[in-house]
């Protein structure tokens, strides 16, 4: 019987940013890429304990579980308590596709008064509160990396990216955070 393998997150131990925008790698979380038609939404929502949003650029949260609208039949479901989302979705009985992407994605928390500016160093979306309020989410682009943005508070974003892009994203965010401090 071998030793239990130890988990190593891609940005483990990193801290960065500026007084205007602090960068913190998020703790490991479980995530699924959830795909389903509209008719499956009520059953999946019940099974997951979070109402899958149907409007673009919106999310729904229940405790530490978040469902992000990414496309008309696509959600990113994140559980910060590392719960078994595959099993939860599987128990819905509805036609869907759930794929575990817990290790594909990693997240960086960007927080502070300059969070918007830091992210806008590489992201072309309008992140002003009017157009991107708390709870808004979107898949978009950040420099040469694809990201998923979720605004968790007026001055805080959760930024998800694929793990191998994380050092690039963290580096560019650091430069943006530095500029946001001026």
């Amino acid at each position: 019987m071998a030793d239990q393998a130890i988990r190593k997150a891609p940005l483990a131990g990193l801290r960065g940013g500026s007084h205007a925008a602090i960068l913190t790698p998020a703790a490991p979380a479980s995530r699924i890429s959830l795909r389903a038609g509209k008719d499956a939404v009520p059953a999946l929502s019940a099974a997951l304990g979070v109402t899958l949003p149907l409007r673009p650029k919106t999310s729904a949260s229940s405790g530490k579980r978040h469902a992000l609208w990414l496309g008309p039949d696509e959600w990113l479901v994140i559980d910060e308590d590392d719960a078994d989302l595959m099993a939860a979705a599987g128990s819905s009985g509805a036609l869907h596709s759930a794929v575990d992407v817990s290790h594909r994605n990693t997240a960086i928390i960007v927080s502070g008064p300059g969070a918007e500016v830091a992210i806008n160093s590489g992201c072309p979306q309008d992140l002003s509160l009017g157009l991107f309020p708390v709870g808004a989410c979107s898949r978009t682009i950040f420099g040469k990396a694809e990201i998923v943005l979720l605004r968790t508070a007026e001055d805080t974003f959760r930024l998800e990216c694929w793990r191998s892009f994380a050092p690039f994203v963290f580096g560019l965010l650091s430069e943006g955070a530095e500029d946001a401090a001026h």
């Binding site: 040469k144 191998s164 892009f165």
Partner: peptide
């Protein structure tokens, strides 16, 4: 702008 050195292109590394 930022696109130079380590930020010129993402250097993707495996686990």
């Amino acid at each position: 702008n930022h696109s130079r050195g380590s930020l010129f292109d993402p250097a993707r590394k495996t686990p």
